[in-house]
Design a protein around this nucleic acid. Structure first.
Lengths: 239, 239
DNA sequence: CGCGGTCTGTACGGCAGCGCTCATAGCGGC
DNA sequence: GCCGCTATGAGCGCTGCCGTACAGACCGCG
C-alpha cells in the first residue's frame, strides 16, 4: 500500500466547508485506522457512525436473498459512507467492507445530523454525492452486464488506484473475483493478459500498475464516464 | 392494458399528505396521459417537470458511453420521476421511457421545489423513496449479473403487473429483450417455457399472467426482496 | 530446512447466452 | 382477398464464463 502517496489527508466532500466551519466539523470527528477486510456494517444494520475516508477506501457490496453478492461501488476520499442518514433512513442498504486499509474520519450519527443542520452547504454537497452514487450504480450495473472481465478488471484497478493514492496495492485474485462476481480463474487469465501487455505486474497479492494510460485503453469507458459524472456534479463546488 | 383495474387513481407517495395539503398539492399538478414509448427525458437533460404516475409506469434506463443500455428500474404509482431535484441536482441521471401508457400527475420543477418547502413530511417521504431506489438499483445489478433470463423475465412481469394494476398488458418480446438487455430469441425461449408451465399466455404483444403465485416461484427472490425493501422503508408512513 | 498454508497458473467439460438468419403466423389496409 | 408489415418461433455455430480440480510457486514458521 505504498507507491507515491500524494499526501491527500483530507476528504474531498468536506472541502466545501469554509475553514472555520471545517475545523468545527473536524472537531466532532474521530480519526481512525480502518483495517483491511473489516466489515463496517451489514445490510439493514442501524447506522451508528458515518465515515469519511481519507486514505482508506471501502467497498459497497449488495446481497441477494439467495446469498449472491456483488460489489456495486467504492468509497474513497471522494465520498462518504452512511449517506442514508441524509435521506432520513437509519439503515444501511449495503454491506460495507474495508478494501484498502488506512485513515478515515469517523463521526457519530447524531453529531452528523447536527452538523448537517449547522452547515447547509455541506448537506447540499452530500446530497449531490448521493446523486453521483445513484448514477454510478446504474452505470456499474450495465457495465457488469455487458463488459468482459478483462475490461472490468482494468476499470476496477483504475478505480482502486485513484482511491489508494498510489500505483501499488495489495489484493489477492480471490478477493478481486469476489468483488467482480466472477471465478478466480477468470481473474487469473484476465490479469495474465494485462500483465503480458505490460500494463500491470502481479506478484502474490501485490498489484502494481505500470501503465495507467494503457490500462485506461484496456478498460471500458465506464471508468471515464464515472469520473465525468462525479466532476460534473460535484467538481464545480470544490476546490 | 385492461385486466382488473383496481381503481387506484392516486400515487402512493402522496398519501403521506394530510387531506388539505394534498388538495393544495394536487392543485399545482396537471393530469396528463403518457403515451407508450414516449421519452420523457434523456440522461443529462435538465429536469423541467416531475411526474407521479397513477396508472402509467415508466422505465429508468441507463446508457453507457459505448451505447449499451439497460433498464435499471421501474416507476409506477408507488414512485416518482425526477428525484434528482430533491438532491439539488437539476439533471436526469437516466433515460426515462414510458413503458405503460396511462395517467400521471405532472408538476413543474419550480412548483415542486416550492411544495417541498411547504410540506416537510412529503420531502421526508420522497427522501426515503430515494433510499429505496438506491437499494433496489443495487439489487437489480446483482440480479442481472447472476440470474437466468427466465427468472429475470418472471420477476419483470410481476413488477409490471403490480404497476399496470392488472394481469394483462401489451409488450412485444423485442421490447422485453431491450429492457432486460438480452436477445429477443432469449425472451422467446424463456417465455415459451413459462407458457408451457401454464404461468402466462402470450399472443402477439399481449401478455396475460395466468398464475401469479407460480410466476413468483419461477422468478428469483429479488421480486420479494424489492417489495420488502419498499414496505420496510416507506410502508409504515403510508396508509 | 522441511512443512503446511496461501496464492497463482492451468486444464477440461459443460452451458447459457450471443449474433445471425430464415421460416411462420397473425393483423391491418387497400 | 391479397399484400405487406410486424411479431414470434426456431436453428446453427460460436464464445465467454462457469464449476471443478489439480499442480506448481512462494511464504512464514517451527
Amino acid at each position: 500500500m505504498t507507491g507515491s502517496p500524494r499526501v491527500t489527508l483530507s476528504n474531498r466532500l468536506l472541502s466545501v466547508l469554509p475553514p472555520q466551519s471545517r475545523r468545527r466539523f473536524l472537531a466532532d470527528c474521530e480519526g481512525v485506522e480502518l483495517e483491511f477486510g473489516a466489515v463496517i456494517c451489514q445490510p439493514g444494520d442501524r447506522i451508528r457512525h458515518v465515515y469519511f475516508p481519507t486514505q482508506s477506501f471501502i467497498s459497497l457490496v449488495t446481497t441477494l436473498d439467495d446469498g449472491a453478492r456483488l460489489e456495486v461501488g467504492i468509497v474513497g476520499n471522494e465520498g462518504m459512507l452512511g449517506t442514508s442518514l441524509l435521506l432520513g433512513v437509519n439503515a444501511s442498504p449495503h454491506l460495507a467492507l474495508v478494501q484498502g486499509a488506512g485513515a478515515a474520519l469517523k463521526m457519530s450519527a447524531t453529531a452528523f445530523m447536527d452538523a448537517l443542520e449547522r452547515h447547509p452547504p455541506l448537506r447540499q454537497q452530500l446530497n449531490r454525492y448521493i446523486h453521483v452514487l445513484l448514477s454510478q450504480l446504474a452505470q456499474t450495473a450495465a457495465c457488469t452486464r455487458y463488459h468482459l472481465i478483462e475490461a472490468r478488471l482494468a476499470r476496477w484497478l483504475l478505480l482502486t488506484r485513484d482511491r489508494a493514492h498510489g500505483d501499488r496495492f495489495n489484493l489477492t485474485q480471490e478477493f478481486l473475483a469476489y468483488m467482480l462476481g466472477v471465478r478466480r480463474a477468470g481473474i487469473t487469465s484476465a490479469a495474465s493478459e494485462l500483465h503480458e501487455r505490460g500494463l500491470i505486474s502481479y506478484v502474490r497479492g501485490e498489484i502494481t500498475i505500470l501503465d495507467g494510460e494503457g490500462l485506461q485503453r484496456a478498460s471500458c469507458r465506464c471508468y471515464q464516464q464515472g469520473n465525468r459524472t462525479y466532476e460534473q456534479t460535484l467538481g464545480k463546488h470544490m476546490r
